[in-house]
């Protein structure tokens, strides 16, 4: 009796994963059929048909017998901008968060217990992990974004703009009436950089706490071995990091998985613009924020299928990160990523 109830519940878990993949794949099927693999390399995202004057190679409007000749651009869906947005925000977040997290993990393992502050600090880190994504979004929207808009971004602009070769950070090229013009990017604090920083804050606790556990499992005799040979504190830390490197890579991957799938906080501060811009000060969009923004309003069949295609890519990607990460962080499989 009990065995069967348990077995059934276990199978529910398997069914959940199957449902996730099958339902998304099935609903995305029209888009998969239509766009195929080209979906991930195309950067056009046009929900509705657009009618506009046709321009010749000289950039001038083409005139026909009945006046201006119009061209019709059909709806088009390509995931490259959101894949780029997800990759860029996640990578910047990792660059910021990984050194901080590893430093804090080393401190927690090798210093804090001596100072008898390991408990309180660990509690704070774990509470940080329990704060909902939405709270970071609200904070990012009302505190971080205005701070960037009013002080950080203008300051960076004053310092970096005169530097030769950094012009592109603050200017974008747009096409207006057939001509390419250059204009300053409006610095309103809702951009790729702010989104990345919010993500960095959000993945700090998970990378810190998993790395702490990984480092804690480094055998004591390894550390004593290096110290007995006259290693300094930092040299023995390096040996420790090296010993634990695969577990630490797993910790970083868990952080990456969380960053890539994070929705609410990013949606609120990234500016939500489906474009690829070289500048981190330009608004962008991630896969998750695109879904949060558009899925509710997607009435058109192909639009919805395209969004489901994006969701499927996001799912497969985070499943892959998780599978690899969990293989690496041996013995700590239960760590919730999200």
């Amino acid at each position: 009796m009990l065995r069967w109830a348990c077995r059934l519940s276990g199978l529910v878990i398997a069914a959940m994963l199957a449902a996730l993949i099958l339902v998304l794949a099935n609903s995305a099927l029209p888009a998969i059929r239509k766009f195929g693999a080209g979906f991930i390399t195309s950067s056009e995202w046009r929900v509705n048909e657009i009618e506009r004057p046709l321009r010749g190679p000289d950039g001038k409007v083409v005139m026909g017998e009945d006046g201006v000749v119009m061209e019709i651009l059909p709806p088009a869906f390509g995931a490259l901008p959101v894949i780029y947005g997800t990759a860029a925000t996640s990578l910047i977040a990792l660059v910021v968060a990984v050194p901080l997290s590893l430093g804090a993990a080393l401190f927690l393992v090798r210093v804090a217990p001596r100072l008898r502050i390991a408990g309180p600090v660990s509690f704070l880190v774990e509470f940080l992990a329990a704060i909902p994504s939405l709270a970071f979004g609200v904070w990012g929207l009302f505190v971080l974004a205005p701070m960037f808009q009013n002080s950080v971004a203008p300051l960076l602009r004053r310092i970096l703009e005169p530097v030769p070769g950094l012009h592109w950070l603050f200017f974008e090229k747009i096409t207006v009436a057939g001509r390419i013009i250059e204009r300053p990017i409006p610095l309103n604090g809702r951009d790729l950089l702010t989104g990345s920083l919010i993500l960095a804050v959000m993945i700090l606790p998970i990378i810190t706490s998993v790395s702490r556990d990984v480092l804690r499992s480094v055998p004591r005799i390894q550390i004593e071995g290096t110290l007995a040979l006259g290693a300094t504190w930092w040299q023995s830390c390096v040996a420790m990091l090296r010993y634990a490197r695969s577990g630490l890579l797993g910790a970083v991957l868990l952080g990456l998985a969380r960053a890539a799938g994070e929705t609410m906080a990013v949606t609120m501060v990234i500016g939500n613009n489906n474009q690829i811009s070289a500048s981190p000060f330009a608004p962008a969009q991630t896969m998750a924020s695109l879904l949060a923004n558009e899925f509710g309003e997607a009435t058109d069949g192909m639009h919805r299928a395209a969004l489901l295609y994006v969701a499927l890519i996001l799912l497969v990607m985070s499943l892959a990160f998780n599978v690899v990460a969990r293989k690496l962080v041996v013995g700590r499989p239960s760590h919730a990523v999200h």
Binding site: A14, M16, L20, L24, S27, S318, L319, N322, R326
Partner: peptide, 25 residues
């Protein structure tokens, strides 16, 4: 064994994707 792994991996599914599955299902 596989179920444990699946459960672990499921904890890492982005919550927005879960929302979309909920909508579809």
């Amino acid at each position: 064994g596989p179920l444990r792994f699946i459960a672990d991996v499921l904890t890492g599914v982005p919550s927005i994707v879960v929302g979309i599955l909920g909508y579809e299902l």
